[in-house]
Amino acid sequence: MNIILDPSIFNHIRITTGKRKQMQGENLTSWNFFFLEGFSKYPKLEIVLFIFSLLMYLITLLGNSTLILITVVDARLQTPMYLFLGNLSFMDICYTSASIPTLLVNLLSSQKTIIFSGCAAQMYLSLAMGSTECVLLAVMAYDRYVAICRPLRYPIIMNRQVCVQMATISWVTGSLTALLETSFALQIPRCGNLIDHFTCEILAVLKLACTRSLLMDTIMLVISVLLLPVPVLLICISYVFILSTILRISSAEGRNKAFSTCGAHLTVVILYYGAALSMYLKPSSSGSQEIDKIISLLYGVLTPMLNPIIYSLRNKEVKDAVKKVLGKMYLQQIQEHL
Rank of each mutant, 00 (worst) to 15 (best):
V73S: 09
R76D: 05
Q78G: 00
Q78E: 03
T79I: 02
P80K: 02
M81C: 09
Y82I: 06
L85R: 13
G86I: 01
N87S: 15
L88T: 06
F90K: 11
Y95A: 09
Y95N: 07
T96L: 12
S97G: 03
I100K: 11
P101W: 13
P101F: 15
L104S: 15
V105A: 15
V105E: 14
V105D: 15
N106W: 09
L107G: 04
L108S: 01
S110H: 01
S110N: 08
I114Y: 03
F116D: 08
C119M: 00
Q122D: 01
Q122G: 01
Y124T: 07
L125K: 02
L127I: 10
L127R: 01
A128M: 05
M129A: 14
S131A: 14
T132Q: 11
E133W: 09
C134R: 00
C134S: 05
L137K: 13
A141K: 06
I148S: 10
R153V: 07
Y154F: 11
I156Q: 06
I157N: 03
M158H: 10
M158W: 02
M158Y: 00
C163R: 01
C163T: 03
A167E: 12
I169W: 02
I169C: 07
S170L: 05
G174N: 09
A178L: 06
L179K: 00
L180T: 08
L180F: 06
S183H: 11
F184S: 06
I188N: 08
I188W: 02
I188Q: 09
